[in-house]
Each structure stands twice: as structure tokens, then as C-alpha cells.
């Protein structure tokens, strides 16, 4: 799973969000390192929709502009959980071999 995809799914893990909300949330989660652009975001959203990992939660009109909220599907939750567990186990192994604990300090 690509990093942008992982971060988009993570942004949706705590509840439905609209496009701009996802962009802001992904920037927060990544500590400002990943700034999603609209083209990348909607390409990913379409792919995730086609794969059944996300769905449309609701649509609203705010200031004459369409705002569509996306949410994780049960399949999306499973995929995200599996990917998070995989990354976690890799990160744990790397930190253990470097004699570092997960809090970031030397053991």
C-alpha cells in the first residue's frame, strides 16, 4: 500500500471526512511532511471507491460548493488494520535491532 493511500485511510479511520478535511488531516498525521494535492487525492479516492475500501457517507452544499464526505467500509477497516499491523511489526523489528525502544530513546 502506498504511503498516501495509507494516510488517507488513516484520516478516515476516526470518522467520515470531506476532501479538504482529508488533506488537512493527512498533513497533521504526517507532521506536515505529506501535503496531498487535489489531483493525487481524487485519483486515490476513486481507486479506493472502486476497490470497495471507502464509500460516500453524505453530501452537503456549503457556500454554494459541493462537499462530499467519505467513510471507511468494513473492508477498508480490515485492510487498514492489516497494513498498520504489518508496518508496526516491521518498525518494531527495526527498532529492536537498533536497540531503540518505541518511545524513541536508547534502551
Amino acid at each position: 500500500m502506498q504511503e498516501a493511500t495509507f494516510l488517507i485511510l488513516t484520516a478516515l479511520a476516526s470518522g467520515a471526512q470531506h476532501g479538504y478535511g482529508i488533506i488537512s488531516d493527512v498533513a497533521d498525521i504526517s507532521g506536515g511532511r505529506v501535503k496531498l494535492l487535489a489531483g493525487t487525492l481524487y485519483t486515490a479516492l476513486e481507486r479506493l471507491r472502486a476497490d470497495g475500501l471507502i464509500g460516500v457517507d453524505r453530501e452537503e452544499i456549503v457556500d454554494n460548493r459541493l462537499r462530499r464526505y467519505y467513510r471507511l467500509t468494513p473492508d477498508g477497516e480490515k485492510r487498514l488494520a492489516a497494513e498498520a499491523a504489518r508496518l508496526h511489526s516491521h518498525a518494531t523489528a527495526a527498532l529492536r535491532r537498533l536497540n531503540l525502544d518505541l518511545a524513541g530513546g536508547a534502551a
Binding site: 476532501g19 479538504y20 488533506i23 487535489a38 487525492l41 481524487y42 476513486e46 460548493r65 459541493l66 462537499r67 462530499r68
Partner: peptide
């Protein structure tokens, strides 16, 4: 198909950014 579905929404995000 993409434009019918997403143009207004993508525009909203682009303008907000």
C-alpha cells in the same frame, strides 16, 4: 464519468487550498 462525478467537489477543494 470522472467530471460528472467530481468536478464541483475537486474545484471546492482546489479553491479552498
Amino acid at each position: 464519468w470522472f467530471r460528472l462525478r467530481n468536478t464541483e467537489e475537486v474545484l471546492a477543494v482546489l479553491m479552498a487550498c
